[in-house]
Design a protein around this nucleic acid. Structure first.
Length: 112
DNA sequence: AACCTGACTTCGG
DNA sequence: TCCGAAGCCAGGT
């Protein structure tokens, strides 16, 4: 997937990709960015989630940072996200991190 | 057009 | 492995 100079659908593709994350799996911001064609747009993924995760009914809780941690701050959604992930069978280690090697989504040959 | 904003990532120490 | 600084990018103002 190549990024066009004027890509009005960048955010739309990010949302579409996030919707593909399966139950019981997680994806990182950077991973989503790569899938939509720009591995350096991780901050944009965060922006999309921040601005429209609820409105578009995205499985926002399945997106975490590179270190396997929930990016939200306690009191800002952290607790809810952790609970939702645990409800999907995902476990956290003693330091609050998720084993990415075990739970990270493998999109295979995903076609958007 | 310039500047600000993020639920980030990478790099150097 | 932890921390802070720097890098990055598109959308919003």
């Amino acid at each position: 997937m190549t990024r066009r100079p004027k890509d009005h659908f960048f955010s739309t593709r990010i949302k579409s990709t996030i919707k593909h994350i399966p139950f019981g799996k997680v994806a990182t911001y950077g991973q989503i960015a790569s899938l939509v064609g720009n591995h350096r747009a991780s901050r944009q993924v965060a922006w999309v989630l921040h601005s429209s995760s609820h409105k578009d009914g995205l499985p926002w809780h399945r997106v975490i940072n590179r270190r396997g941690e929930i990016a939200l701050e306690p009191g800002e959604g952290f607790e809810e996200q952790k609970r939702m992930l645990e409800n999907e069978g995902i476990q956290f280690d003693s330091t609050g991190r998720i084993n990415l090697g075990l739970y990270m989504w493998d999109p295979g040959n995903l076609i958007l």
